[in-house]
Amino acid sequence: MGKFKSFFTNHNETRDEHQDPALRSHYYKTTQKKALEAVQELFGSMNGYKVTSVSEERGELSIKSKKAFIVVTIISVRPFETSVDFSVTTESGFIPIDFGYSKKEINNLYNKLDSKLPFLRGGQ
């Protein structure tokens, strides 16, 4: 039911123990500061994305794209173990359904981030 639900919504987010394995947090072998820099570089290199807010203290970034609003949360779990979570909300004009776009966007972002940072593991 979870995969069906993620298709008929305009919002998806990752967390450590998500029922959908594709929407589980990713952990990287890096510091919070380096992960934050990597995420900023990632969105800086992507056309159509604009970082609108950065809070180093909270480990959060807000990003606006043509189709979505993205919040990235970066948390240092242990020294050199940092989790990255995404929350993606699409802005649809008439109906609050994105037909899986927000989930695809999360998977796309994780794939790009996995190539920039040393991936340790996914959530539980």
Score class of each variant (00 low, 15 high):
residue 81 E to N: 05
residue 34 K to G: 00
residue 28 Y to S: 02
residue 48 G to F: 11
residue 3 K to P: 00
residue 69 F to E: 14
residue 7 F to S: 01
residue 80 F to E: 02
residue 60 E to Y: 11
residue 96 P to K: 06
residue 89 T to M: 13
residue 123 G to W: 09
residue 79 P to V: 00
residue 103 K to H: 08
residue 40 Q to R: 14
residue 24 R to I: 05
residue 3 K to N: 13
residue 1 M to N: 05
residue 22 A to E: 07
residue 87 S to N: 08
residue 109 L to R: 00
residue 67 K to E: 13
residue 94 F to G: 04
residue 52 T to K: 14
residue 107 N to M: 11
residue 43 F to M: 12
residue 102 S to L: 02
residue 34 K to D: 15
residue 25 S to T: 12
residue 66 K to V: 14
residue 108 N to W: 07
residue 61 L to A: 04
residue 80 F to A: 03
residue 59 G to Y: 07
residue 64 K to A: 15
residue 118 P to M: 10
residue 26 H to R: 15
residue 60 E to S: 12
residue 52 T to F: 11
residue 67 K to H: 13
residue 106 I to E: 03
residue 63 I to G: 12
residue 101 Y to A: 03
residue 97 I to M: 04
residue 49 Y to F: 15
residue 41 E to K: 14
residue 32 Q to N: 06
residue 1 M to D: 08
residue 96 P to G: 01
residue 117 L to R: 11
residue 114 D to A: 01
residue 89 T to G: 07
residue 44 G to E: 15
residue 110 Y to A: 07
residue 39 V to A: 06
residue 102 S to K: 00
residue 121 R to D: 07
residue 22 A to I: 03
residue 87 S to T: 10
residue 66 K to R: 14
residue 119 F to V: 10
residue 18 H to P: 05
residue 80 F to S: 03
residue 109 L to A: 11
residue 91 E to P: 01
residue 19 Q to S: 07
residue 100 G to N: 09
residue 80 F to L: 07
residue 99 F to T: 03
residue 103 K to W: 02
residue 76 S to N: 10
residue 110 Y to W: 05
residue 73 T to E: 15
residue 76 S to E: 13
